[in-house]
Structures are given as C-alpha cells and as structure tokens.
C-alpha cells in the first residue's frame, strides 16, 4: 500500500487538544502568547516549549481564554496576578525596568556621541602635530 493510498483511505480531521479556535487570528495569538510566557517550574523555557505538567495546564488555560475572546492584556494580567512579573519574557515598561528598556538607545546615542567627540579631539591633535 503506497503512502498516497493510505492517505486517501484515512481522511478524518485532526482533533485539537481542547476546543478549536473560532479564527486563524485567535490561533496565531495563542501560539504567540505561549512564547511570551515563562514556565515557572522549568529551567528557562517558555510555555510553548515546556513539557512540564503545570505548563500543560497553563497552555490549556491560555487556550480557553483566547477562545473566550479575552485580550492579550487580560491573559497576561491573569498570569501575573498569580505568578508575578516573572512569567513575562517581555518585561513591562515600569520604573524598575526603565534602565533595561532605555539602555540600548542611550548606549547607541552615547556611542555615537563618543565617536563624534573622539574625532574632533583626534583631528585637533593631529593638526597640531603633523603626521
């Protein structure tokens, strides 16, 4: 029996883990959210990646909330109310994380400023003592 024939004989549809999503958009959001949330009991894994039992429970929870029409914000709030900001792989922008979020831009600005100043100084010096 060839694979193609096998394929033709069994044409039943997949059964998802729980209730199916109403739209492709919901499904996409579900998989995106799982990558943003951290599994608590694992060594640095997302809910998407973890094989832990708790992660499975939380996946089901997220699935149910997405299917329920909850917004990303509401789902994230649900998680942080229980486990704190630790579950967020993308830290919220708040006073304690200002440095984290602003550092890249500040460093880049600082670096470019340093480069500019370095050149001005360097040029002045090499003008006074020719090559």
């Amino acid at each position: 029996m060839t694979a193609a024939l096998f394929h033709a004989v069994f044409l039943s549809l997949a059964v998802a883990g729980a209730e199916p999503f109403a739209s492709a958009e919901q499904e996409r959001r579900y998989y995106e959210l799982l990558k943003e949330l951290r599994c608590l009991v694992c060594q640095n894994q997302s809910l998407s990646d973890s094989a832990a039992g708790l992660a499975g429970d939380l996946r089901d929870e997220v699935r149910a909330m997405v299917a329920d029409g909850k917004s990303d914000r509401e789902i994230v709030d649900f998680m942080t109310a229980r486990y704190g900001d630790f579950v967020l792989f993308r830290p919220r922008f708040r006073p304690a994380t200002w440095i984290l979020w602003l550092a890249p831009a500040a460093l880049l600005a600082g670096g470019l400023f340093w480069l500019f100043r370095w050149q001005v100084v360097h040029r002045r010096r090499s003008d006074s003592e020719p090559e």
Binding site: L40, V41, L54, D57, L58, R82, Y83, G84
Partner: peptide
C-alpha cells in the same frame, strides 16, 4: 484538577 492551585499561584 489543579484549578484552585492555579488561582493560588501554586507552581511547585
């Protein structure tokens, strides 16, 4: 089913 544990933030 661990529903209460979920609300209580039980993870270990």
């Amino acid at each position: 089913d661990g529903r209460i544990g979920l609300d209580w933030g039980v993870y270990g």
